[in-house]
Design a protein around this nucleic acid. Structure first.
Length: 416
RNA sequence: GGAGAAUUGGGUGAGCGGCUGAAACCACAUCCCUGCUAAGGAUGCGUACGGGUAACUGUACCGAGAGUUCGAAUCUCUCAUUCUCCA
């Protein structure tokens, strides 16, 4: 949630930032107006309420002293009508404001480049150079089927399109990757947590998936529960509505979960293979920090994910997402893109974002800093998307005969 | 599935119509005393929003929502969660 007080105080500043994210300044001035309407309505209500409280107190005194209460009672009743009316006005103003405010994305940092889509992202650096192949490298679905690692048809049979099944070494590699990633992250100071795959509406509002992106989520029939699109949702919301102590920060966590996405609007994109599935495995990093420390922790997270790829000997690059590609809640995001020789391009394998206090404000995650309470900064990032990592291993480690070399770091996990 | 009980501030827990935003204890913070792997004393200490330079002050919040009442943490109803007992 954006800071409405800041919007009120520095409308032009906030407006300038949000215009870069495509938010119209008309919407923002409506928001500002609604905020002021609410404040006025609240003040009005509180005046009548204060009068009621005072008169009720007086009532008690009258009763005790045996005075006649009829006149006072009439005054109270008259005032009560105003209280009720004012409360109704205030409620409406509240709902109107919240409905609108929840749909406004986070303000991008000044370091975020302007741009329309992923083509305008700025490359930060490359890590490990792609190797030259003496043959034409194949795409992963070909390799996966040749090796019997992934069965796309049977996934469709069991569920629907964009579901797949891993067999044998494919399945074992997934498991090895998950364990390797969790251990690696733990070595970098991230505490492992295991969380529910179903969450309620409130949690999704806290991290920003709702109310705007409900069509991307799988919802349980007849229940207000959704399958998580990322572990970011349950892990970030672990501390919603809580006040942490400064000493507990930074809180660094890592979790493995399956993730579920409808991929609405992705029809026709990556329909082959396992780049874009409805269900996929992901190991996630989530951190909560003081505002002062959040960039430091952000760098730790980026390095963690990048070093993970390096450990797996996978060439990749870091890109700074432009305004058009930036997510709803992010103030800035660095994507890690892994080289896929079969596709002859870099593809996203991790996305690391600092949401600053945007999610904390929605989910009410605060910490006590001496006397006052402050919203924490929340950060999240994948380390890594397991399926895509498997894809990258297949494509980068393929031999001319179609066999695939196992990365050294995974061998202990496979009993090799 | 049925019957009961519970849900209070960071924690434990009292309160069961106005004197309660809430006792007490613990934790925490500051100060004093003391001098050694610790104890004692004093004071402060919920959250959110608003007004005020500030001291301070208004409103709301005692699981959630609705109701009764001049007035509700306290009474009633609905829901959620937890616990105990019974099938």
């Amino acid at each position: 949630m954006i800071n409405l007080k800041l919007l009120q105080k520095d409308f032009d500043g906030v407006s300038a930032k949000l215009t870069r994210k495509g938010v119209s300044s008309e919407l923002l001035s409506t928001l500002k107006e609604k905020f002021e309407v609410l404040k006025t309505a609240k003040a009005e209500f509180e005046r009548y309420q204060a009068a009621r409280n005072a008169m009720s107190k007086e009532f008690g005194v009258y009763k005790r002293e045996g005075k006649d209460i009829n006149e006072l009672k009439a005054r109270i009743e008259e005032n009560n009508l105003k209280v009720d009316a004012a409360l109704e006005v205030q409620r409406e103003a509240q709902v109107a404001l919240e409905t609108l405010a929840m749909t406004v994305p986070n303000m991008p940092d000044d370091t975020v480049p302007d741009g329309a889509d992923e083509n305008d992202n700025i490359e930060i650096k490359k890590v490990l150079m792609p190797k030259e192949f003496s043959f034409t490298p194949k795409e992963h679905w070909e390799l996966a089927e040749e090796n019997g690692w992934i069965d796309f048809e049977r996934g469709v049979k069991l569920a629907t399109s964009r579901f797949s099944v891993s067999f044998g070494m494919g399945a074992r590699l997934e498991r090895a990757l998950i364990n390797f990633m969790l251990d690696f992250n733990r070595g970098r100071g991230f505490e492992e947590v295991s969380v529910p795959a179903l969450v309620n509406r409130q949690s999704l509002e806290g991290t920003g998936q709702l109310p705007k992106f409900e069509e991307d989520l799988y919802k349980m029939d007849g229940l207000d529960l959704f399958l998580i699109p990322t572990a970011e949702v349950p892990v970030t919301n672990l501390y919603s509505d809580e006040i942490l102590t400064a000493g507990e920060l930074p809180k660094k966590m890592t979790a493995y979960t399956s993730c579920f996405r409808k991929e609405a609007g992705a029809a026709g994109r990556d329909t082959r293979g396992m780049i874009r599935q409805h269900q996929f495995h992901k190991v996630e990093l989530v951190a909560m920090t003081t505002p002062e420390k959040s960039e430091e922790v952000f760098d730790e997270m980026v390095n963690c994910a990048s070093d993970l790829l390096t450990a797996l000997e996978l060439p990749h690059r870091l890109v700074n997402l432009c305004t058009g590609d930036l997510g709803f809640g992010a103030a800035h995001t660095t994507d890690l893109e892994v080289w896929l020789p079969g596709q002859d391009q870099y593809r996203e394998i991790s996305s690391i974002s600092n949401t600053r206090d945007f999610q904390a404000r929605r989910a009410k995650i605060r910490y006590k800093d001496g006397k006052k309470n402050t919203f924490v900064n929340t950060l999240n990032g994948s380390s890594l998307a397991v399926g895509r990592t498997l894809v990258a291993i297949m494509e980068n480690n393929q031999n001319e005969d179609g066999s695939i070399d196992i990365p050294e770091v995974l061998k202990p996990y496979l009993g090799m």
